[in-house]
Design a binder for these strands. Structure first.
Length: 479
DNA sequence: ATGTAC
């Protein structure tokens, strides 16, 4: 189906010539060889969207709906295209890490980890908060202004040690957009979205308590970020919940209509896209930004709840400073080599190197943290971009990457295997909140690639390097 | 990932 061009000097980057155009794939030979041929069929469909400037896969790539998870796809902002299928329905889904001053020794006793997990569960209901919870928060303020729409009680930082870190240590705290598009959503969507504020959601979303292990080669950066060996950190993975879903569904229908009217399409009817300048394209981009506002505020409020739990267990002086918050499902404008680009990242994380002007101010000199989760029971990584990332529009992986569908995992993986992967019954058990592991077996590590191999491909390719490895101590999942 | 229809 395709040829591999020989012009790449990077053994971790394959430049393919598919019938519809070029595709860069960042992966070791072993990972590249293990890819399902369907990811190339899917790429070939995505490459048929007109006017594309660039498209690539990260090593954790796997098949999704219309577009693979692990895709970076770039158009020029002028005359470009936007695709709700490439962004996917969990708009703004991403990662957040908070730092504590606690040492993992304080959680060495499994009973202490259980106590903490139970406390966190009390603040993060699995589905929705009860009526009246967060009644001091106006949802339309959050939708319109992101973190800046939250009451002072939540920001800036009655709870972080350095002033306003939760507003400055984020990829984006607020997206401005044309609010007239908000009229189209029924009251039920607003109501549900309010009750879902500060909740994790399902699937691969989680909150995890982890122990830091600094990579010696990056000790300087690690210490500049406030990390120390043995430090307890909190990693959060969540998105825009029902709000993003409603944006995806509503705008997707409109974009599909525009597509038909313009006679556009590819071999895959699920792959929807439209020129940026169309009414449907503009409505989607505006409401996409509203979902990015929801998602960042949602992760912020999850962190707020977890901080309350830490205070219940470790005392009122416990701090949870914000390391960083960034997304891996989104599209927005970025400038590259002086050109305004419209960049889609679906299951791909931006990792800017030291000195890049788009780093937020606190991370201008070091590069910002790129937060990469592993699968359950396995390590996660704090990375930083390298200058070589420029070739890939500064995109790196977003995690381990699924190798088995949820249904296949339920069929093929036993609860015993899952228990063993989490060390259940040993001193090192990763404590999980769920009453039965059976209910979340589709998230067992046997459903995912080995995150260490993914990271090796990213570092080998010169896209980013490891600052710290974070080993799981306890995990909180939705149902 | 999510809500909704089956």
């Amino acid at each position: 189906m395709f040829k591999i061009a020989n012009d790449s000097k990077n053994p971790y980057c394959k430049r393919l010539e598919l019938p519809a155009g070029p595709l860069s794939v960042y992966a070791s030979d072993a990972l590249f060889g293990s890819l399902d041929y369907k990811v190339f069929e899917m790429a070939n469909n995505n490459l048929q969207i007109p006017e594309r400037v660039y498209m690539s896969y990260t090593p954790d790539v796997h098949v999704g709906t219309g577009t693979c998870i692990g895709t970076t796809a770039v158009w020029n902002a002028a005359g470009g295209y936007v695709s709700p299928s490439i962004v996917g329905s969990d708009i703004g889904c991403g990662m957040r890490v908070h730092l504590t001053r606690l040492h993992a020794e304080e959680l060495r006793d499994v009973r202490q980890r259980r106590k903490l997990v139970k406390a966190i569960e009390g603040y993060l209901p699995t589905e929705e908060h009860r009526r009246g919870h967060f009644s001091d928060i106006r949802l339309e303020h959050v939708i319109r202004k992101g973190l800046h729409g939250l009451p002072n009680k939540y920001v800036p930082d009655s709870y972080t040690p350095r002033k306003a870190t939760s507003l400055t240590h984020v990829e984006s705290a607020k997206f401005g957009f044309d609010e007239s598009h908000l009229d189209r959503f029924p009251e039920s969507v607003w109501h549900r979205s309010h009750r879902q504020l500060g909740t994790l959601g399902n699937g691969n979303h989680f909150a995890e308590i982890q122990e830091v292990q600094i990579d010696e080669s990056s000790r300087g950066v690690a210490e500049a970020w406030g990390l120390f060996d043995g430090q307890v950190v909190v990693m959060i993975h969540s998105g825009s919940r029902a709000w993003g879903g409603a944006v995806h569904q509503h705008c997707g229908t409109e974009v599909a209509k525009t597509m038909r009217a313009l006679g556009l399409g590819t071999a895959d009817p699920r792959l929807i896209f439209a020129p940026l300048e169309t009414d449907a394209g503009q409505a989607y981009v505006n409401l996409l930004y509203s979902a990015l506002n929801y998602a960042v505020a949602n992760r912020h409020l999850i962190a707020y709840g977890i901080r309350e739990a830490f205070r219940d267990v470790f005392g009122t002086k416990t701090e949870l400073s914000t390391l960083y918050d960034l997304m891996h499902n989104y599209a927005w404008e970025e400038e590259h080599d002086g050109t305004a680009c419209f960049v889609h990242r679906k299951g791909a994380t931006r990792a800017l190197p030291a000195g890049h002007p788009d780093n937020p101010a606190p991370y201008r000199e070091t590069g910002h943290p790129a937060l990469i989760p592993g699968s359950m029971g396995t390590a996660s990584y704090l990375m930083v971009g390298e200058p070589g990332g420029r070739d890939n529009y500064y995109s790196i992986c977003h995690g381990a990457g699924r190798i088995r569908s949820r249904s296949a995992t339920k069929r093929l993986v036993s609860v015993e295997e899952f228990r063993a992967a989490l060390g259940v019954g040993t001193d090192a058990e990763v404590v999980v909140n769920q009453r039965t592991l059976e209910s979340i077996i589709d998230e067992s590590p046997q459903a995912y690639k080995d995150v260490d191999q993914i990271i090796e491909s990213v570092t080998g390719a010169g896209l980013a390097r490891v600052v710290a490895k974070c080993k799981p101590l306890a995990t909180v999942k939705g149902t």
